[in-house]
């Protein structure tokens, strides 16, 4: 018992798909229970925050955390687990890159609240009520965590040792990561688990170095399942994205949307993809090129589908954070950092 590892699993601004990814290792879950005591896993085990608070610092061997950081409560839990853990693994696309929920970073809290609580056609809110950090009810006061202006990657809030990409990570990767930890066979800190190359390199489709005269949206054509998506004019993030996923989407005749994040050596996944797109454009005529670029109707959503919190665009976004939040009087960045 004394030799058993100590694990914690926790989730923040995520969907629960990463928890299912753990379940999807199926009967191997019993092997995990055999090598490790689980000190926190709200989905499965009855230990609470206060149990973690009383542990000595660095008592937990590995904490696996999924989800980005969207609220003050999530930030507190991340900081608590960092203090109590030797190693933190950012588990899945949201903890690693911000994930799809970080597409919200193109908007601020006010715009999100306005849509959710006022504008939506089914909402009946004549008093213009918004959720409040503190609410006085007849019996006393009740509180909610602060909703930050933006979503943060886990490593923007606490230091992170390893990253497990994917939305969700594959069961094989989860099993491989747990095995590496169990064997004490850990790679250098900062390692991103996953493939060494790009989705393009793993993709079995035929590439002919063909250029395209225009881009199509996925509902507009039926792509040939044997040929490169991009060479058929469909935006595919495979060239900018780390492999290790098994090209699951391409096997279903759908393009890659980049959930494994940037491949090694790629600083910005969206910028890399953009440069790939420019290489397949079959034209030297500026007006024609412009017309083709206009066919890429949602550049942000194609280039940064899973990584808005990681994109170089963050410098623009961060400048909005300087405004003080009315509830705290502190800037959002200060609150988040």
């Amino acid at each position: 018992m004394a030799d058993k590892l100590k694990f914690a699993f926790y989730w923040n601004a995520s969907c629960g798909g990463c928890e299912v990814a753990v379940l999807d290792i199926n009967e191997k879950i019993l092997d995990v229970a055999a090598i490790a005591d689980i000190l926190l896993w709200p989905v499965a085990v009855d230990f609470k925050k206060h149990h973690i608070e009383v542990l000595p610092d660095k008592h937990i061997d590995v904490s696996f955390m999924n989800g980005g950081i969207r609220t003050s409560e999530q930030k507190e839990m991340a900081e608590l687990l960092r203090r109590k853990s030797k190693t933190i693994v950012a588990f899945g696309a949201c903890a690693y890159l911000g994930g799809i929920p970080s597409l919200a970073n193109f908007h601020n809290r006010e715009a999100i609240f306005q849509r959710a609580y006022i504008e939506t056609p089914s909402t009946d809110n004549p008093g213009g009520v918004f959720p409040q950090v503190k609410t006085h009810v007849p019996e006393g006061e009740v509180e909610l965590p602060l909703f930050f202006n933006h979503v943060y990657r886990l490593d923007q809030v606490i230091p992170v040792d390893y990253f497990l990409p994917g939305c969700p990570p594959t069961p094989a990767m989860v099993a491989a990561a747990v095995t590496a930890i169990a064997d004490g066979n850990l790679p250098p800190a900062g390692t991103v688990f996953g493939g060494p190359s790009t989705v393009c390199d793993s993709c079995k489709r035929v590439k002919q170095e063909k250029k395209v005269k225009g881009f199509h949206r996925i509902h507009e054509i039926i792509p040939d399942p044997e040929r490169c998506m991009l060479e058929q004019g469909i935006v595919c993030a495979g060239s900018a994205t780390r492999d290790g996923c098994g090209t699951r989407c391409l096997n279903a005749n759908m393009p890659c949307r980049g959930c494994f994040g940037p491949a090694d050596g790629v600083a910005d996944q969206g910028a890399k993809l953009l440069s790939t797109l420019s290489t397949v454009v079959d034209s030297n005529d500026l007006r024609e090129i412009e017309k083709m670029i206009d066919q890429i109707v949602d550049p942000a959503g194609y280039l940064y589908r899973f990584g808005t919190a990681s994109s170089l665009l963050k410098h623009k976004l961060a400048s909005e954070e300087k405004s003080a939040h009315p509830a705290t009087g502190r800037s959002q960045l200060e609150v988040a950092k």
Binding site: R70, A116, F147, V297
Partner: peptide
């Protein structure tokens, strides 16, 4: 329920 993620807002503009 202490959470919101704002899908109804950030899906605007998407295909």
């Amino acid at each position: 329920i202490p959470e919101l993620r704002g899908f109804e807002k950030f899906c605007e503009g998407r295909p």
